[in-house]
Write a protein that binds this DNA or RNA. Structure first.
Length: 304
RNA sequence: GGCGUCGUAGCUCAGCUGGUAGAGCAGAGGACUGAAAAUCCUUGUGUCACUGGUUCAAUUCCAGUCGAUGCCA
């Protein structure tokens, strides 16, 4: 069975640009459902700080990959890719068009271009590597990588501990050089993909971000973060909006300063997202309110 | 009103005894294959408040003006 006439439309863009509202309108026009590609909206305990769709929005259109996990469940891009492909396979027969909205570029890439199949990380190996890094810094990691995978060592950012840690945990677990396993082989999807990007003038986007942080505080972000404080070591909570308040709970900053940091970190996050998406030549850009234009663009590409 | 302190990058401030300036933060640009709202890299020319004076040379010394602030009245 082939579904090559089916279309997955990606709605990408920085945080607070207006993806949620645009994609809900589009879902209405195309009578279809929405996949989220926001790596933090997955977690049901994090509702306010992740600006997840409201209960009303969730009720008006079927959303997938929103609040489907608990913060304590381990999850990663590769599993996301599998889960999305499985669900798309189920839904496409009924829906000529499916929508995916989100700001996590890596997750979107995994769906569009695939991600290399590698063994799941071994928590014990990861723990040991982290311990080495904490105790002795990045130098031992560099040395080990140069030894185990000289090829990758030539290309990685040797100043980035996260990259080195990841490569080493794969080398150690498999006994093979990480670069050998990173084939980046192009995958074939049995549906077509269309990428829509949403953008606003920088100043306007930053105003929206600032406004949204205030709105989150009024909606009870403080209480939400306080309830999650005991779980602050979980990766899911290494997230803008929570970690800054955790600092305040620990007495490291005033509340005012913490909220200020949330604004700053949200802006920087948005900037990184824009850097990521800007370099993606497959994206066609729209103003978030040009829903009609987007719909037309989708229809046009859906006929070919 | 008197005395003192201060006025340097968007913000907070460094600049010893004169040779036209430099940090942190913010901002900007970039990277990115299982932590990705993560992680990391690059990036600092601005009437040194204003006006005069001294000097070969003044952000730096002197005088005045304006502004901020503190103490005394």
């Amino acid at each position: 069975m082939t579904t090559d006439d089916r279309l997955l439309v990606i709605i990408a863009g920085p945080t607070a640009v207006g993806k949620t509202s645009a994609v809900i309108s589009l879902a209405g026009l195309f009578n279809t459902e929405i996949f989220s590609a926001d790596s933090r909206q997955f977690y049901r305990e994090m509702k306010i700080g992740t600006a997840a769709p409201s209960p009303g929005e969730m009720a008006s259109v079927k959303h997938h990959f929103v609040h489907h996990l608990s913060i304590s469940e381990p999850y990663n891009v590769s599993r996301y890719e599998e889960d999305v492909l499985a669900l798309a396979g189920k839904l496409f027969p009924e829906h000529p068009v499916l929508l995916m909205a989100g700001g996590s570029g890596l997750y979107i890439n995994a769906v569009c271009h695939g991600i290399d199949q590698l063994p799941d990380p071994d928590p014990e190996i990861r723990r040991q590597l982290k311990e080495t890094f904490t105790a002795s810094g990045i130098e031992p990691l560099r040395r080990e990588l140069t030894l185990l995978d000289p090829e990758y060592a030539r290309h990685v950012d040797l100043a980035n501990p996260a990259r080195l840690l990841r490569a080493l945990e794969v080398c150690r677990a498999t006994g093979l050089p990480y670069s050998r396993l990173r084939t980046s082989r192009p995958v074939h999807r049995n549906f077509r993909i269309l990428k829509v990007g949403l953008e606003l003038p920088r100043e306007e986007l930053y105003e929206r971000i600032n406004g949204r942080v205030d709105a989150m505080m009024q909606a009870g972000l403080f209480e939400e973060a306080l309830a999650l404080y005991p779980f602050r070591h979980l990766n899911a909570l290494n997230t803008v909006g929570y970690k800054e308040l955790f600092d305040h709970f620990e007495g490291l900053t005033t509340l005012e300063h913490a909220v200020d940091k949330i604004r700053i970190h949200s802006r920087r996050y948005a900037k990184r997202q824009m850097t990521w998406f800007r370099s993606d030549q497959e994206i066609t850009w729209f103003h978030p309110q040009e829903v009609e234009k987007m719909a037309e663009f989708i229809r046009r590409n859906n006929q070919d």
